[in-house]
Design a protein around this nucleic acid. Sequence first.
DNA 1: CGATTCCATGGAACTGGTTCCACACCTTAG
DNA 2: CTAAGGTGTGGAACCAGTTCCATGGAATCG
Lengths: 368, 368
Amino acid sequence: MRGRGSSKDRGKVIKPPEANVRLETVPRQSTIRDVARAAGVGIGTISRVLNSSSQVSRETRARVLEAIRRLGFRPNAQARRILRRRSEIVCFLLSNRDFLHPFHARILQGVESYASSLKHHVLFAVLHYSPRVPPEKIDLPPVLQEHGLIDGVILAGTIYPNLLRRIESIHMPFVAFSNNVVGTDGEQHYDQVGFDDSNGTLQATRYLIEQGHRLIGFVGDTSYPWIQRRFDGYRQAMRESKLKPISAMPRSLDGFVDFGQKSALRILSRKTRPTAVVAGNDETAYGLWVSLRRHGVKVPEEISLIGFDDREEAVLMDPPLSTVRVHKEEIGETCMKMLLERLHHPQMAFSHRILPTEFVVRGTVLHL
Amino acid sequence: MRGRGSSKDRGKVIKPPEANVRLETVPRQSTIRDVARAAGVGIGTISRVLNSSSQVSRETRARVLEAIRRLGFRPNAQARRILRRRSEIVCFLLSNRDFLHPFHARILQGVESYASSLKHHVLFAVLHYSPRVPPEKIDLPPVLQEHGLIDGVILAGTIYPNLLRRIESIHMPFVAFSNNVVGTDGEQHYDQVGFDDSNGTLQATRYLIEQGHRLIGFVGDTSYPWIQRRFDGYRQAMRESKLKPISAMPRSLDGFVDFGQKSALRILSRKTRPTAVVAGNDETAYGLWVSLRRHGVKVPEEISLIGFDDREEAVLMDPPLSTVRVHKEEIGETCMKMLLERLHHPQMAFSHRILPTEFVVRGTVLHL
DNA sequence: CGATTCCATGGAACTGGTTCCACACCTTAG
DNA sequence: CTAAGGTGTGGAACCAGTTCCATGGAATCG
């Protein structure tokens, strides 16, 4: 068998006669060359039709499209991606610390929605790590280790600095959801999207003051930076009106609901009981609500209550919970948008986009 | 420029001298051929080392690995996939009717977990469709239209028959989460994973009977097939003990919580008020609970209550809701497992795997 | 009427991996 | 000492696309 001969033969003798039967049961996906042969044109023409790039005559285009339809041809996505050097797939990366919390699920929803409108795909991956391990020891999921599979990463969930440094080390474009970043070091080496925690509670607290409340408490686990920021907003509003902040911060290791429950006791045991409470988030507000109800304290008649996040469940509470709405889908969309900008302009300066929150008045706030 | 000459040159003259500067700012990812040259071996040897397939001498392997390390080489995932004819990416497809409901989010979690343990990737996609449109008019997301991007599909969310037929039409291996399939036509042309709705309520109702309850109601919107199956399980348990089923089925278009609230009125207006109620799901149980509380009826002192699904929130209710636990992650894992089996054995007969449920006793059930 | 420009088209060479065959070299057996 | 078998290695051909250059014919121009 001569060198050149074998090359020519291979093209046609891919299926040796005896193997034909087996191959016919699983019909091989037709390729651009099959289409070219069927339409009686060259392979380049097929490519041009597919990419509607340069000129192809009306009749030729019609013949090619007809052949494509007849053969049921669908271009191979992988092959195309090699040349394009873009996979148009982004990775939504969530730390295992958050499972797929409804809040982040909604962000994912936003990412997917915006991505798919621009013909991009979203790969979902979970990262297992602990805040303590040194960055270089964090085991990134295989998606990030492979080369060429994804174009960039959207990082959600609770993010510790070691993770940020690890992601930076692989030189993969990424955007982080910034509100759950724990312990930033000031300098910004990456793109971020977030919302304004402190402004949210600032508006909420101001609203309570407008409604005539003077004794307003804050309940939230400020060991989380985002709760701390919400506390700051509350304090600012109190300061503006020369009111004295009242806060309850029990020790709790059983999550936000438990924290809310425990802090109810502290609130109730005060000499001067507040007429309203701003909670660090909806879960804390819920815990507080449960505990107040148990103690026969009526919401909002005796104590007004405001949450934060506007989870699905907030509106289902009885009475429905007043809260600070965060547009979760919009966060996802904005993350995706920023990532695409970064991909198209790699040298662009890093930015931090802050989305507004919205105070939603429902049944748990009383006008005094 | 001669034909053959140009081919040889191209390999080396990719960067013409004057373009060198620009190219150095964005260093081209090194390829298998760069590694081969650096290690002084052939390209085949690099491939052999990467796939640890056949024999490579100890020294050669060391030299190659060293070159790989030095050049920071990472194989291009896309190129590899063309030849493998497997992308090792599966698509988790959710209908837009369900957003990313926590229930399905947990299934996704299970899919991801099992997939990643087997070095597979999960692509998240949302499908926009209405139950009414004919199958051929359903617009599948681009992932499913492309060829070679994904190996198979896991279908979750509420699934109407037109969607099933549409997916079947593209001849892509898929596994469906069967509990939310609406209107099956008996014949099974695909793989399914689900859990046993009717057995869940059967166990729960039997438990209530054991606890001495005789007047037991069922509350649930049976227009959903899965709720209907739960109703069937309840009825079977009642029949076994020769008890008369009591049910409340108000009209409600505002979701399960509202349905639960509305049915409370019906329950309470009965001459013989039931001492226990089995709800179609946790949301309905919650709605019922809210409404009962408003009417001053104590749970469980006056009425015992059982939900279904074991959502995260069930345990946070006050008292914590007794419910039928569904292992959502396990559903996801099993879907993924079945899909991989299907991919490896395309001719295998279709199967329907039913996972068990588990009755969880919490605070809302009283022993009479 | 010959030269120039333009458009449509074919196909070689390319992307970055894998596969497989040929071959060199070294044992081991006959 | 030759034949046979085994191991390690190089590289052409391959996958299924894209890119780009050469070509041929029609249209335009001087």
